[in-house]
Amino acid sequence: MNGGAVWWVFFYALSAFTLFNALLVVTGKNLFKCALHLMLVFLGVAGLFLLQGAFLLAGVQTLIYTGGVTTLILFAIMLSEEVVGRQRQLVSRGVSIGISAAICFLGIALTIFGTAVAQLPENYGVHIAPVAQFVAEASHLPMGNVRAVGVALLTQFLVPFEFASVLLVVAVIGAIVIARLAGGK
């Protein structure tokens, strides 16, 4: 239980970190700061991936979200708002609707999980192992193995993979076209 305790410590710490930053993202007054908090949320999620043994996914999360999307958001903010100057009202009037919708959804979701999880195995979703041992084991497990993910992507999931790449190209070109056409006006 020793290793399991360490795991749980990591899990709760990362969860708290992620949720705290997420709340700051949706409630902060300064859009620029919100974006920076979002970056921390992404890092937290990457850590949670690591805890599940999803090494590749953690790396991808860090690279794309933390490195790419956050940068993109910061650029968008800088291109569309005076960041440092005036503070704009970020929260609209429909706060009560939003809160009620969120709480309602949370309740529904928890109920579902309660119903569904009752039929699940005991230690569902938890790895009880020392971190070092866990890491050593995980590198041999197929689910943690970067090589296994790569092989799967290029064999079993080759067609979706290629479609994804096409989608990315289309998205990039489309974004350029949209931004340029709008600018040309």
Partner: peptide
């Protein structure tokens, strides 16, 4: 969209129950 989603979930919950 969310309301539609909630209706769907309520329906599936009802079936689970």
């Amino acid at each position: 969209v969310l309301l539609g989603f909630a209706v769907l979930i309520a329906f599936s919950m009802w079936r689970v129950i």
